[in-house]
Design a protein around this nucleic acid. Structure first.
Lengths: 131, 131
DNA sequence: CCGAATCCTAAACGATACTG
DNA sequence: CAGTATCGTTTAGGATTCGG
């Protein structure tokens, strides 16, 4: 499966579609990650402090919360602000780019909500047939 | 981080937002998976046979192609048709639900394409600052 | 032509304990 | 309050071989 035409591969690479070398993938990876979408939705309601996010997101560990926020910050979707008080206070908020992501993201999530019973049904049928 | 109010958790669960018990997640998982989005885009151009998909998608192994197609089929997004010829022929195509997914999905991918240089830049700045 | 079966590695995720 | 550090587990993905 390696003997594809070079033109096709180059086309893909320049379009950023090749999963091995892909700027688009970084966005899709956020969507696929376990917590980032939830965090983005929570931040949509306004800036939040670290522990407030933790309380709002059931079952997320501090480790994953930190890690998820860092990856979002790294890609410019979330802004992190440290206020040097004691005890320390850190505020997270959506950047303009982060805000602009929400529209297509909401579109996808809305589709998922609308179709989730259909998906569930299809899955049950499939699982019933395939032992 | 376990002592959140029950009402909040129940609200999440019923809305399907809890990653541990979530119909919506199954859709987001497809988006996050390495090959499924590419397969969906390829199938958007019409029904394709297994090996044709393999040739169209550089670097995907047969194993992952099979697995990805199965998961899409299981959730009712892709239809698999077997023609009992020799050699055997199997056609994959989008279901109506699969087709309906493409619009929000394209919305997300378009956003990613538009912002991919901004994301790349943000990433480089972040990486330069954080050693 | 279209896979299934097996084995393996790397990455994601989670639990726990500790810190300025 | 907002993390870091460490460790163990689980899952996704890849390489290879075999079969109807």
């Amino acid at each position: 499966m390696r003997d594809m035409s070079l033109s096709k591969r180059e086309e893909w690479d320049t379009m950023g579609f090749n999963p091995h070398n892909c700027p688009i993938r970084s966005v899709l990876d956020h969507v696929g990650a376990k917590w980032t979408v939830l965090i983005l939705f929570e931040l949509q309601q306004g800036p939040q402090r670290f522990n407030a996010l933790g309380r709002a997101l059931p079952d997320i560990s501090k480790r994953m919360l930190t890690q998820s926020l860092r990856s979002l910050e790294r890609d410019g979707l979330v802004k992190r602000e440290v206020f040097d008080t004691k005890p320390p206070s850190v505020s997270y908020s959506l950047t303009d780019m982060g805000v602009s992501l929400m529209q297509p993201l909401v579109g996808l999530v809305n589709w998922a909500e609308d179709q989730m019973t259909a998906v569930k049904d299809a899955r049950e049928v499939y699982d019933a047939i395939n032992v």
